[in-house]
Design a protein around this nucleic acid. Sequence first.
DNA 1: GACAAACTACCTACCGTCAGGTAGAATGGA
DNA 2: TCCATTCTACCTGACGGTAGGTAGTTTGTC
Lengths: 192, 192
Amino acid sequence: MSAKDGNTLDRILDTAESLMQTRGYNAFSFRDLAKIIEIKPASVHYYFQNKGDLGKALVMRYSKRFETARDSLDRLNVTSAEKLDRYVDLLSDGFQLKGRMCLCGVLAAEASTLPSDVVEEVRTFFVANETWLATLLESGRQSGDLRFEGAAIEAAQSLFAALEGALMSAWTFSSNARLNAAGKWLVASLKT
Amino acid sequence: MSAKDGNTLDRILDTAESLMQTRGYNAFSFRDLAKIIEIKPASVHYYFQNKGDLGKALVMRYSKRFETARDSLDRLNVTSAEKLDRYVDLLSDGFQLKGRMCLCGVLAAEASTLPSDVVEEVRTFFVANETWLATLLESGRQSGDLRFEGAAIEAAQSLFAALEGALMSAWTFSSNARLNAAGKWLVASLKT
DNA sequence: GACAAACTACCTACCGTCAGGTAGAATGGA
DNA sequence: TCCATTCTACCTGACGGTAGGTAGTTTGTC
């Protein structure tokens, strides 16, 4: 009777994700979450033993969604440069459309205060994106529509960190314009 | 008798700064702070009415230190490219030497949960650095030892955000190597 | 130089509120 | 009847913040 519609697990996940993206891990509580979806805080523990478990599940789900989206990009029949643009859009979407920070971006800043398995999942998200980007950059360099110096993996790590930074700056100023400008500027330096 | 040495205000400021840089705003408490400097939590309120006041004071002091450091860079008789390298070192130092995140970097991620005047100070820090960087980039472009497209202020905003992102990535992985690589990579694309 | 007043730099003890978390009972559908 | 789900009722501990007090130092006046 209390769960409005759909299953409670999904509502917990969706709402918790939104809360964590906007408040981070430490300023988010089971009480806030429970109040929004109109269940009792204790009921959340039926699905997740503790806060860390919820955090971990959230990051894993978030990572999986990104993996799927990257796979879609891979199947597009466009240049590497074009894929890179689309990837930047992908990262930006959460902020542009819903005013949310990247989940792993917020969590990264709180890394030292997070349960260790949550940090581990955040790192996994970073690595997955960096690895994918490295492959894209390298094939763009081969085909001649991207240009950069040195190892692709280092470029990918730097670029991904920079994009997360752009997101954080835009977040701080609540400014789409900042995000757009920074995204374009970062990618422009890679194009031939 | 209780304050070990020096004045208590400075010890509060120094310790609080270290705590906020490593834990952020929300995972840091007056109790943690008070325990470390061996006074009672209530005594902190003698110096700062509330947590927001302390946060604001911390960011202002941090900003001022950076301003002084940038002024020193200005007085150096070296190329803009060289100044840019030194500036990156400046931003990196807190992490490399003390394992701390940039104060305003952590706070930026928590922006939506911070007292509004603390956010305002964080934005001021961003703007001050961006403005300084814009001037540096522009004069580097004039003199021919830096190269970039478009408005200097947009390049400066993008670069600063990217550097903060690099810091956050390094923070998440506890890796000096990541920070070094990203810093070098970002600056390299600006050099002629 | 003596002494009262005022100030500095804390203290103890407490407030209401919130946190994450637990035990066990009630509910309801298969 | 069983079992999944959600509840009530609670715990322990931490949070930011406040009230009121005090030892020691400084200041102003005579």
